[in-house]
């Protein structure tokens, strides 16, 4: 039983291969082709991995929200497996986002970390979703686990718009969002290539992780082998 997450067995591997190729291309452009930025110099090249990571982290968490809502309405375990997968990948990206941000902050702000609204709300997001993954470990009943983690995901998702708008709502050290109109093509080409690279990698990872979650779930709900067969095997 695969709970509907093994329909295209090769697709995630193809997506990951495309993602790796795009990431190498985007990073080449970001590191060697794009010019240094006027004020931040070479350090600004971190943007070509930091911003795509941020976009995709929020996208993975948004997909988790969609899975949570569908699971609550339909009760199909394939959506619970996808929920677990997207939260795990979202947490990985959110963790990377915080690390990249700290590396960028040191040479530009002079500190590794600041309790600035954008950084604080992102850290809250990471720990909220890590908490949901932990919650799942402690609940044995698959139905309760699915329902509780879906509800927790919907509640925790409230932080996503707060993360996005935090730089507009409060005084923040973090810069405002840029748009293609305000960024030269030399800057946004590596940015977009890496955004698609991480999107492909993220999608491939979520598909594989959902397959893993489905396999575990299938073993959890499988009926125990007959006592007579157990005796026969030991004999």
């Amino acid at each position: 039983m695969d709970y509907g997450n093994n329909r295209f067995p090769r697709t995630p591997y193809i997506l990951i291969a495309i993602g790796v190729a795009l990431f190498l291309t985007g990073s080449y452009f970001g590191l060697f082709v794009a010019p240094p930025e006027r004020y931040m110099g070479e350090v600004q090249r971190i943007m070509y991995v930091h911003v795509p990571t941020a976009w995709n982290a929020l996208l993975a968490i948004t997909f988790a929200l969609v899975c949570a809502i569908i699971f609550l309405f339909k009760g199909e375990f394939k959506w619970d497996a996808r929920l677990e997968a997207s939260i795990e990948v979202g947490c990985l990206l959110a963790f990377l986002l915080c690390c990249q941000g700290a590396i960028w902050a040191k040479p530009t702000w002079g500190v590794w970390w600041d309790w600035d609204p954008r950084l604080t709300t992102t850290a809250v997001l990471l720990f909220a979703f890590l908490g949901i993954l932990t919650l799942r470990k402690f609940v044995d009943d698959p139905v309760k686990r699915g329902v509780w983690s879906s509800v927790a995901t919907i509640i925790a998702y409230v932080d996503v718009p707060i993360v996005y708008f935090s730089v507009r709502w409060w005084n923040s050290l973090h810069q405002l969002q840029s748009s293609p109109e305000t960024v030269s093509s030399q800057f946004y080409i590596p940015l977009r290539v890496n955004a698609f690279a991480i999107l492909f990698l993220m999608t491939g990872f979520i598909m594989l992780r959902a397959r893993l979650a489905s396999l575990r779930l299938a073993q959890e709900v499988a009926p125990p082998p007959m006592l007579a067969e157990e005796v026969g095997e030991t004999a």
Partner: peptide, 19 residues
């Protein structure tokens, strides 16, 4: 303009690719 900083750039890329 921030001068230098390649070490930070390589660290960020290596961390991302490695993770």
């Amino acid at each position: 303009m921030v001068v230098g900083g390649w070490g930070y750039v390589w660290t960020a890329y290596a961390l991302t690719a490695g993770a």
